[in-house]
Write a protein that binds this DNA or RNA. Structure first.
Lengths: 186, 186
DNA sequence: ATCGGATAGTTGCATGTCCTACTGTTTTCC
DNA sequence: GGAAAACAGTAGGACATGCAACTATCCGAT
């Protein structure tokens, strides 16, 4: 993260220009979109982690915590966590290892299936989740640096991208919660 | 990456619901936006890296290559690369180390400033850049998994986010190349 | 019942990113 | 001029992520 030295020109717009100049106009927008995604994620992640740092957790671990926080029982199998967060099983192992070291969660054997390990949210973890969320909400999520209508549009567009990538098979998101973002092309 | 097992419901929409249910409605959209960004970046990166893998480079290294490819002289100072790509100096060192090992670039001393190291694109690197770009363009950038108008909208919205985050000080992107995406909120 | 395939988790390895700290250079300013 | 500040690049350390490989367990088809 950290915007080491502000540039005068948008580097992505610059790259887009280069793409067009080299006869790759058809791919210029796609390139710009992918590159923007990379950078925007970096920015968003940096903001979130800045808030979470004092709590001693990263966004990845925070997500695990919240998943458990929302689950009625307060515990979930590792595999289910990985599926919900859409990350590799090894990432779950890593996150849970660290959360366990910090006494925020605990591993428990599954009562009937000896293959699966349950991750249980401990009181300390539950409290951290609640407190950190409050702060994240006010300092980042409630003020993401975009006008509300663009936030919604962003979510909708990315939902379509995620759906297209096979993240979930449910209904196309565009038609349910929000409307398809209709961009006014001048 | 990898969409390990497709879920029936959109996990982010699910989280958004939970947020609202817990009295955090004001932050729900922001949370969804940030989370979507994380996942979308993962998806985009995975697609790109899948194409680049046979070439033996990652997206980070590819970006360095392209920067040099576009520079007239074919060489740039490390610091300038870091600023353009908006990454930490140590990341540039890392990428250049590997590119140099693969004989794609070469480090040269700066003629007048002995602090700076120039990175020079070698013929092999130039060729790889051209070939890989062709394939990336056709396999990813030209078909990013979104309708063209949404790709443009995405780029515009993210440009605003990046500008807001201080990535560049030039003109607000929304008013120059593309129009402000006007989302129809039904 | 049993064997083969699917599942759950872990470990080892490679990568990228950032941060902090440190060494040289160059520039700035008194 | 000369000291202080800024700048360029690198080394070491902490994390997260993914892949491949491996063990243990469960499940289904024969």
């Amino acid at each position: 993260m950290s915007a080491h030295d502000r540039l005068s020109l948008d580097p992505i717009a610059e790259a887009r220009r280069q793409w067009a100049a080299h006869g790759w106009a058809a791919a210029a927008d796609g390139m710009a979109a992918v590159t923007s995604l990379m950078r925007a994620q970096q920015i968003a992640l940096a903001r979130v982690e800045a808030v979470l740092r004092p709590y001693g957790v990263t966004f990845a671990r925070y997500e695990v915590l919240m998943l458990l926080y929302f689950s009625r029982v307060g515990s979930l199998p590792m595999a289910k966590i990985g599926k919900r967060l859409q990350v590799h099983p090894t990432s779950v192992t890593n996150a849970v290892d660290r959360l366990e070291s910090a006494d925020l969660v605990r591993r428990t054997p599954h009562p009937t299936d000896r293959r699966t390990t349950l991750v249980e949210l401990l009181p300390k973890g539950r409290e951290l989740a609640a407190t950190a969320t409050e702060e994240l909400n006010t300092r980042v999520f409630a003020a993401p640096g975009l006008p509300p209508e663009n936030v919604t549009a962003l979510v909708t567009i990315l939902a379509e991208l995620r759906h297209e990538a096979g993240d979930f098979s449910g209904p196309r998101p565009s038609s349910s919660d929000a409307e398809l973002p209709a961009v006014d092309h001048q």
